[in-house]
Design a protein around this nucleic acid. Structure first.
Lengths: 161, 161
DNA sequence: TTAATCTAGTTTCAATTGAAACTAATTGCA
DNA sequence: TGCAATTAGTTTCAATTGAAACTAGATTAA
């Protein structure tokens, strides 16, 4: 490490870690910008938070699941799910029944109104994803998907331990 | 899409988007787990939040910069930086002078105490990063670095527009 | 010059989040 | 059985965050 012109903004000798090169930092910044743009859009247009959108998305794929499974499938904790559901139900986008076989559990699903929102938001989200990926070549995209799978898997194993 | 056994957990016809495959979601989950483990560690051991650690990290690399530049280099907003600095200074880990050429600006740097913390935390952070990357082959690691660069660059261009 | 604009950084107040405690129902097991 | 432990989900309260307003200094341009 050596001085730049002016002797200002010196990269210091003792430094061992460059934040800009640090993987967790890079992932965090990337993740934030990837989510922010689209999140702002459906927040403004539909009053949906990320937590609410994720909840709707999994209910779009898995009708009739309980809150616990929403939490698993959205990687959110049960408190966040509870709050997201409270708002979605208040807005009439999600319906909740009590499971007959276990009265603690709920049976959740999108209402007609919820499906209407879903049918508008999902394409926006997918388009946004496409725009992000458009910056990569086909090969890079394949590698990215592969690497995410690998890391995902590694995490699961880590948690399982 | 078709029914699974039991007629439960049905993947619904109208579903357009699988959250688990959605890039912003995958990045978010990955980023969270990548940061969480290490963040918990230096929170417990040194009482450092992520914002504080990032601030210390850039001050370790760039001595004498102002809060504005900390914000740029950590991808945090100025309020977050102001608060992180307030705590770091209160803890005696960062020193702040006023810039002579512009009395609005501060001139920031790690104190001896700050350097001591840095010298302990940085290796921990790097080791953690190594453990994450250990799940990938050399080739995968190279591609990951490359892809992150590409997306990073794309973002910068996006913002510049 | 000096008034208007801009920039660095802080403060305030409301909204969001996180952790712990809680309620209600279910399960495991002596 | 029935009582202790577990699970689903909610509530509460404190801590964190975000947005806007604010202070103080610097810059611009008439």
């Amino acid at each position: 490490m050596k001085k730049e012109a002016q002797g200002k903004r010196v990269a210091v000798d003792r430094a061992i870690l460059e934040l800009e090169q640090f993987l967790p930092y890079r992932l965090s910044v990337l993740s934030n910008t990837a989510s922010r743009a689209i999140a702002d859009l459906y927040e403004r247009r539909y009053g949906l938070s990320i937590a609410e959108w994720r909840t709707m998305a999994v209910l779009g794929s898995y009708d009739g699941i309980a809150a616990r499974e929403v939490a698993e499938r959205t990687a959110m904790d049960k408190v966040a799910v509870s709050r997201a559901l409270a708002r979605l139900i208040a807005d009439g986008r999600v319906r909740r029944r009590t499971a007959e076989h276990d009265k603690r559990q709920s049976v959740l699903g999108l209402t007609a109104k919820g499906w209407k929102v879903y049918a508008e938001v999902a394409p926006l989200a997918l388009e946004h994803e496409k725009r992000l990926l458009a910056h990569l070549t086909v090969e890079e995209r394949r590698w990215l998907a592969h690497i995410l799978d690998r890391l995902w898997q590694a995490e699961l194993e880590e948690i399982a331990r």
